[in-house]
Amino acid sequence: MKIMTAQTAMGLQEVKRWHTRRVDREQTVASHTASLIGIALILAKPYNLNPNDRCDLVELALIHDAHETEYGDIPYPTRMKFLELGFDLDLIARKAFWGGIDPYDMVMPHVAVLVDVADAVEAAMWSQDNAPKVAPSAVARALELSQALNNEVQALVLEMLGIRPEVDQ
């Protein structure tokens, strides 16, 4: 597998997210990645990960969108439509970028799930502040993905999204 280069890391600053949606401010993949790492670490606390899994969590969170420096940010509706047709564009782009390897396959499944949930939570949190028309579907996706995690992590997700179970649900 090729390695993350400094040029790729710096290139994440140039890739815009949400480029097909009206947003109050722009977000780059680098900004998204930095926030996602923090969210992933918070969500992982209840699991008390061993040092190797914790390192893998941070590394996967860091590189999960590195392929976008070459292929751009694939809009969520486009990815979903192609998934319905049997094509996982994100997986195809990741494998093409990383020389046929998917970094998600290089970590333990619970680490990959934590990164996926953190990715969705970051998108939901960001859209709540900056893309209100997209926020309801982003929040719904984060809540759906968080169902794969334990109750303590689900409670953290609700808190991050500003949802109080006894009032909002």
Results as ranks from 00 to 15, higher is better:
Ala124Ser: 07
Asn130Ile: 13
Pro132His: 06
Ala123Asp: 03
Arg79Trp: 02
Val111Ile: 09
Glu122Arg: 02
Asp88Ala: 03
Glu122Ile: 07
Asp116Gln: 13
Leu91Trp: 01
Trp126Leu: 12
Trp126Arg: 05
Ala96Tyr: 05
Ala120Ser: 09
Asp90Cys: 04
Asp119Ile: 03
Arg94Trp: 07
Ala96Thr: 15
Met106Gly: 06
Val121Thr: 06
Ala96Met: 13
Asp129Asn: 06
Leu114His: 06
Pro109Asp: 08
Ala96Gln: 15
Asp105Cys: 11
Ile92Tyr: 06
Ala131Leu: 11
Ser127Leu: 11
Leu91Gly: 06
Arg94Gln: 13
Asp88Asn: 09
Phe87Leu: 14
Gln128Arg: 15
Val107Glu: 07
Met108His: 12
Val107Lys: 06
Ala118His: 01
Val117Ile: 11
Gly100Ile: 05
Lys81Tyr: 08
Asp129Ala: 13
Ala123Met: 08
Asp105Glu: 15
Leu85Gln: 14
Gln128Lys: 15
Val115Ile: 12
Val121Cys: 08
Pro109His: 05
Met125Thr: 10
Lys95Tyr: 08
Trp126Glu: 04
Gly86Val: 09
Glu122Pro: 00
Leu89His: 02
Leu91Lys: 13
Asn130His: 12
Leu114Phe: 08
Leu89Lys: 05
Gly99Glu: 01
Leu91Pro: 01
Val117Ser: 08
Asp129Thr: 09
Met125Cys: 14
Ala120Leu: 10
Asp90Val: 07
Pro103Thr: 08
Val107Arg: 07
Gly99Tyr: 00
Gly99Lys: 00
Gln128Gly: 14
Ala124Cys: 11
Phe82His: 15
Tyr104Phe: 15
Ile101His: 02
Leu83Gln: 13
Leu89Ile: 02
Asp116Pro: 03
Met108Ala: 15
Asn130Asp: 07
His110Pro: 04
Trp126Asn: 04
Ser127His: 02
Ala123Thr: 09
Val121Leu: 12
Phe97Leu: 05
Leu91Tyr: 02
Tyr104Trp: 12
Glu84Phe: 07
Glu122Trp: 01
Pro109Gly: 06
Ala123Asn: 04
Tyr104Met: 13
Val111Tyr: 00
Ile101Phe: 08
Lys81Ile: 07
Asp119Tyr: 03
Asp88Leu: 00
Pro109Trp: 01
Leu85Pro: 00
Pro103Arg: 04
Leu83Cys: 07
Phe82Leu: 12
His110Glu: 08
Gly86Lys: 05
Arg79Thr: 10
Met106Ile: 09
Leu83Ala: 15
Val113Trp: 04
Ala131His: 09
Phe87His: 13
Val113Gln: 12
Val111Ala: 07
Phe82Pro: 00
Lys95Gln: 15
Val115Asp: 11
Asp90Pro: 02
Ala118Tyr: 05
Leu114Val: 10
Tyr104Arg: 15
Val121His: 00
Leu91Thr: 14
Lys95Thr: 10
Val121Ser: 02
Ala93Ile: 03
Gln128Val: 15
Val111Gln: 10
Leu114Tyr: 07
Asp105His: 14
Ala112Val: 03
Ala93Ser: 12
Trp98Cys: 01
Ala120Lys: 00
Gly100Asn: 04
Asp102Ile: 04
Phe97Ser: 05
Ala93Phe: 00
Met108Ile: 10
Ala123Gln: 03
Phe97Pro: 05
Pro132Lys: 05
Ala120Tyr: 00
Gly100Phe: 05
Val117Gly: 05
Met108Glu: 14
Phe97Ile: 12
Val117Phe: 03
Ala93Asp: 10
His110Gly: 02
Trp126Ile: 14
